[in-house]
């Protein structure tokens, strides 16, 4: 049978968005090393329910690293130990018997806490609504092979499109900047020929929406890239800055585009 761990958890508990939060201590006993991090929390929650308490609330859904819902800061690091993984892909074999584990939500002013470890990331949806799309009305498309797209361009667009919108980049940044998230979408669409028509308008309005929602600026620390579960490169931020500058100049001299 699998080895078992005895752990101490320090967990952020906050009854609601308006209430004060604090760190609570829990014993996590007999945790199999084969369990996932979220299954460890399930086990702890079963114990809390049995003792008449309220279980720890946390967001999660697919539990296979693709939906972007899980969002825990584990020992100070969004999505915890390991490179290129989401919280739900962390397994308990990454920890040692006797460890103390600190578990907090993704923290940022633009991501208010809803309860315990759950945060509200609708600001991300608002940024996408500001321009993170190609206006292609259903039924209006030409044949899919009408416009060849060179493989390197398609691949680079794909690397940016891999973003799952989890918000780890924001939580890791000391400025709570959403630049990696915004750049990934701006560049995914802007690189493709079908996205060129709206390129300038897109970058201007998405960056402005980001500012309006209280995300900070980028100061080139690259924590975002380090914690990104899809390993999206910070070079997209550089590209977006260039696109933003070009679009701003055009906006200043051309009234409509």
């Amino acid at each position: 049978m699998a080895k078992k761990l005895q752990l101490t958890l320090k967990v952020w508990r906050q009854p609601s968005g308006k209430a004060e939060g604090r760190i609570e201590t829990y014993d996590a006993k007999d945790i199999p090393v084969t369990a996932s991090f979220l299954e460890m929390l399930d086990i702890v929650n079963e114990g809390i329910i049995a003792d008449g308490g309220e279980p720890i609330a946390f967001d999660h859904d697919c539990r296979e690293g693709i939906c972007g819902m899980c969002s825990l800061t584990i020992n100070g690091c969004p999505h915890g130990p390991g490179k290129g993984v989401t919280t739900c892909q962390v397994h308990m074999r990454s920890f040692q018997d006797g460890d103390t584990i600190w578990i907090e939500p993704f923290r940022a002013d633009a991501f208010p806490v809803l309860k315990d470890l759950m945060v509200d990331r609708t600001a991300f949806d608002h940024i996408i609504q500001a321009g993170g799309f190609i206006s292609a009305r259903t039924g209006s498309a030409v044949d899919a092979n009408a416009t060849p797209i060179p493989k390197p361009v398609a691949d680079a667009a794909f690397d940016a499109a891999a973003c799952i919108g989890c918000g780890a980049c924001v939580a890791a940044c000391k400025n709570a900047s959403a630049m990696l998230f915004v750049a990934a979408k701006v560049e995914h669409l802007g690189m493709l020929p079908q996205g060129k028509a709206e390129k300038d308008r897109r970058v201007l309005s998405m960056v402005r929406a980001m500012d309006d929602h209280g995300f900070g600026n980028c100061t080139n620390q690259y924590e975002c890239e380090a914690v990104c579960p899809k390993e999206i490169s910070a070079t997209y931020i550089t590209k977006m800055n260039r696109d933003f500058a070009a679009a701003s100049v055009k906006e200043a001299v051309v009234t409509e585009f």
């Binding site: 030409v142 044949d143 899919a144 493989k151 398609a154 667009a157 794909f158 079908q194």
Partner: peptide
């Protein structure tokens, strides 16, 4: 067939060959 056309128009990055076709 229309689905593929629609998705490509939206910017879905389907796998491509070196010639740029799907």
């Amino acid at each position: 067939t229309e689905i593929i056309d629609q998705c490509v128009a939206q910017g879905v990055p389907f796998a491509r060959e070196y010639g740029g076709l799907l």
